[in-house]
Every structure is written in C-alpha cells, then in structure tokens.
Amino acid sequence: MTTASLTSSMSSTAETKYEIAHLRLVPKRHVGRMVAAAAVLVLLAALVRAFSVGQIEWSYVRDFLFAPAILDGLANTLLMTVAAMCLGIVLGVIVAIMRISGNPVLSSIAIGYVWIFRGAPALLQLMLWFNLALIFPTLGIPGLFEMRTVDVMTPFVAAVLGLGISQGAYTSEVVRSGLLSVDSGQYEAARTIGMTQMLMLRRIVLPQAMRVMVPPIGNEVIGMVKLTSLASVIQYSEILHNAQIIYFANTRVLELLLVASFWYLAVVSVLSIGQHYIERYFGRGSKSIRSSI
C-alpha cells in the first residue's frame, strides 16, 4: 500500500465514522434491577398475605384504637416524652457549656456525667430511680424538710429522672458539636461589640449551633417517644403499659400491640413534619437550606 492510498482510505472512514448524530439511542436494560424489584415485591406480598390469614382479630384493633385507656396512655406517653426531653436538653446544654468552659473542675464533671449516664442502660437507670427508697428511705435537707422517698419517687418522677438524665448525656454531645461548629470569628465578633459570655451564647452562638443541632435532636425526640415505653416496667401508665393491662384481661396480645404501634408511628410521623419546619427556621440566612426549599 502506498502512502497516498493509505491516507485516502483513512479519510473516507473518518467521514462516515463521525456522522452518528442521527442514530437512535437504545437505553441499556437494567435486568438486575428488575429481578431485585420483583423479588422484593413477592416477599412483600407474602408478608401481607401472612398477616391477612394470620389469626389477627382486626375488629379488636379497630375497637381499641380510640379506647379511653389507650388515649390516656397516649397522653401520658406524650407528657413523658416532653418532660424527659426538656430535662435532657436543659442538662445537655448545661453540661456541654461546662465541658467547653475553661474550668477544669466543671469540664471534668461534665465528662464524668456523660461517661456514667451513657454507660448504663436506660431501663436500668429507671429501675435505680424507682427503687431509690431502698437505700435512701427519706429525702430532703436535714432540719429543713424531709419526706419519704416512696412518696416522691412516683413512677412518673422516676421515669422523668431516668430518661431525662440519660438523655442529657447524649444531648450534651449534640450540643457540644453544635457549639464547636460555630466559627471562632463569630465569638470574636460578639466579643468586640461588648457582649458578655452569656449574651454571646444566647444571641449569637446557640442560634447558629441550632442549625447543626436540630436534626440530631429531632432524631432523639423521636427516639424518646419510643424509649418512654420502658416506663411501663415501673408501672407508669403510658400507652404500652395500658395496652398490656388490656391484653392481660382479654388475651388479644397482638391486636393491642398493633394498636400501640399505630400510635407510636402516628406520633413519630407528626414529629418528623414538625422537625422540617424547625430546621427551616434555624436555617435562615444559610444558603444551602434556602436553595433546597
């Protein structure tokens, strides 16, 4: 082959080779995806069928969904969630500030608190508080006032203390990460306009830390809704405890557990929606949040 014929054959194939803009595009088939989807749907169908042929008396579920005892339990569950979470957040903020303060005693105590109360199961802590009377028969300041521990440590008080104090250990870490996320320039700017430490935390640092803290705290509130079910163990009449009392009487165990789980799911769903709006509020002034709305 001569040099001349070689170049001419190359140029002719090159011309046709690059004229493909008019060709039809054939998407690739995701065979694996289809197989996986089919398999999962089959499993789901089997699960639904199992429940429909299982010996669930759906009429019990329907009848007890709005039973007064169940709604009472729901109210107590919500009350416990709010009370324990408030205590947890207050403790969390205080402990986080103690932790990052320059005071070595305060910061050691903060570390110790997190270590101990994150290190024991919440259920165990509930039982400790509830049985406090075994070691401290009376509570109070000698000479000023005194009362019997069993009168103070009602199931409600024991559950709030147990859940709230252990929650505080987790929340303090969330608050601390929020505080650390605020740029040091913000602290300096607040100081240069003459703010005191407390004013700076309240007006400048915490509002910005909230943007980072809200998603994990929302997560923990949702966790707390379900964690309150532990209080059933110490006879606090929250929703699971009341459902249990009913099924001890009528033996419709699974039906009443389904009733309770319906309400947990309902509460968690409402909270998730609420979290979205709180996040939007604390995200004001932040580009990433606004552009995603």
Binding site: D183, G185, Q186, E188, A189, A190, R191, T192, I193, G194, M195, T196, Q197, I204, P207, Q208, R211, F282, R284, G285, S286
Partner: peptide, 24 residues
C-alpha cells in the same frame, strides 16, 4: 469579664473575614 466587655464597647473592630452574624 464584665469590665472587659464594657471596655470593648468603646473599641470597634472590622475583621478580615467580615464575621457578620449569618442568622441576622
């Protein structure tokens, strides 16, 4: 600290990176 805050009120500062409060 309160006295320090009082002294700082009379001294303004402008930073290299502005340090405006982003939530305001």
């Amino acid at each position: 600290d309160a006295e320090i805050s009082r002294q700082r009120r009379r001294i303004g500062m402008v930073f290299q990176r502005f340090n405006l409060f982003p939530h305001k």
